[in-house]
């Protein structure tokens, strides 16, 4: 039972990390790529840390593992937020599929 759980979490984490990397290559613009990088990347790391916690089954490793997960949950969105804001302000274009941009609209309104 424990082995099955460990294998499941390991493979799940690896699959999510792979999705993050492929999404990083394949999606059309910076902002959609950030979706893949933050969400799938965090879940991938979480899966592997949980597998490690089950495998070792020790309180000290458990606490440190929870610490690593919390660290990723805090830093991944902050990093994406900072990069996204800096990129938008420095004029990185949105992709051609984009249907609405209310930020640009409000800036234009306030200039008038």
């Amino acid at each position: 039972m424990r082995e099955v759980l460990i294998c499941f979490f390991l493979l799940f984490g690896a699959a999510m990390t792979l999705v993050a990397a492929i999404g990083c290559l394949r999606l059309p613009d910076l902002y959609t790529r950030m979706h893949a990088a933050t969400k799938s990347g965090t879940v991938g790391i979480m899966g592997i840390v949980i597998a490690m916690m089950i495998h070792v089954g020790d309180a000290s490793v458990g606490f440190r593992g929870i610490l690593v997960i919390l660290f990723f949950l805090l830093t991944a969105p902050v990093a994406a937020h900072m990069i996204g804001r800096a990129a938008y302000r420095s004029g990185v274009p949105l992709c051609g599929k984009t249907c609405v941009d209310e930020w640009r609209k409000q800036e234009l309104d306030s200039e008038e």
Partner: peptide, 13 residues
């Protein structure tokens, strides 16, 4: 932070 990690949304500014 929470918006960035929930389905389909990412906070920019």
């Amino acid at each position: 932070n929470v918006i960035s990690l929930t389905p389909g949304t990412l906070s920019l500014d």
